[in-house]
Design a protein around this nucleic acid. Structure first.
Length: 264
DNA sequence: ATGTCGCGACCATCGCGA
């Protein structure tokens, strides 16, 4: 089965490209981020016609996450458990249990839109820090269940210098600060596998290119969209990739889809 | 050197977030 994640930067603006991509790449489960719309306005009918049911946590103008599935699923969380204070009401986490069948059984999937955190330091970075703390605690709880688990989304963290075109240019950015990278590493080190890294070595693997300053034509990208696999999911990992060609299309999102495949 | 997009709002340019 194929599990993907895509920050679409407005579901309404991206619907034609989303439907085109679903038909072309046929993922079984898709984590979406930055819907920028309320649940009532989510284009559930068009997505149903493509063969997917949708679990949606919406928000007006900002944020918004969803999980699309061709398999039966139940929502297990709307919002990140344990998150309180500033930003706790933002739509940044939704989680489901999906029935994969075959040799895979039940799969738990979380769709994550982690706060950007800029400018750092400041209240926005504090929000990123708090989200990481709650996510790490929740992930620890989930790992104890020993399920096939995939936590996928826009983590807004560049894990390593090889994941950015120009590390020096990003040195002061909240996405690449040592504290941000340490928080991401701390989460991964609970026992997760970074699916893209497990399948591909080397640098130049990017998932985001800014709309500004010709970032795409100059290939000034960063890798911030990640699929984190529990040990039982990692045991089944058969492939992973980045649908980079989607960045070249008219009306493209600034992020491209990332995906992994799990065998039976 | 510069270069963007999407949303929503005092409705048509601007502030915000990214």
């Amino acid at each position: 089965m194929k599990i993907a994640s895509w920050n679409v930067n407005s579901i309404k603006a991206r619907l034609p490209l989303l439907l085109d991509w679903l038909a072309a790449r046929a993922p079984d489960i898709v984590c979406l981020q930055e819907l920028k719309c309320v649940a009532e306005a989510f284009p559930a009918e068009a997505i149903a016609e493509a063969g997917y049911t949708a679990a949606v946590l919406g928000q007006k103008t900002y944020n918004g996450v969803a999980i699309l599935s061709r398999l039966p699923m139940d929502v297990t969380e709307r919002g990140l458990p344990g998150l309180s204070g500033e930003g706790a009401d933002e739509a940044r986490y939704i989680e489901v249990l999906a029935e994969a069948g075959g040799g895979l059984g039940v799969v738990r999937v979380g769709s994550i839109y982690l706060p950007n955190g800029n400018p750092a330091p400041g209240p926005k970075y504090d929000k990123k820090r708090a989200f990481f703390a709650a996510l790490t605690a929740h992930a620890r709880t989930l790992l104890a269940r020993e399920e096939v688990l995939v936590l996928a989304g826009d983590y807004n963290v560049i894990p390593h210098p090889r994941d950015v075109h120009d590390p020096a240019a990003w040195a002061e950015d909240a996405l690449f600060l040592p504290e941000s990278r340490a928080a991401f590493a701390g989460l991964v080190n609970l026992g997760f596998t970074d699916a893209i890294r497990a399948c591909h070595a080397g640098g130049g693997l990017y998932t985001f290119w800014d709309y500004q300053a010709g970032a795409w034509p100059k290939n000034r990208g960063i890798r911030i969209d990640h699929l984190l696999l529990s040990p039982r999911a990692a045991d089944r990992l058969t492939g992973a990739g980045i649908d980079r060609e989607r960045r070249a299309l008219e009306k493209a999102s600034d992020h491209v889809p990332v995906w992994c495949t799990l065998g039976p």
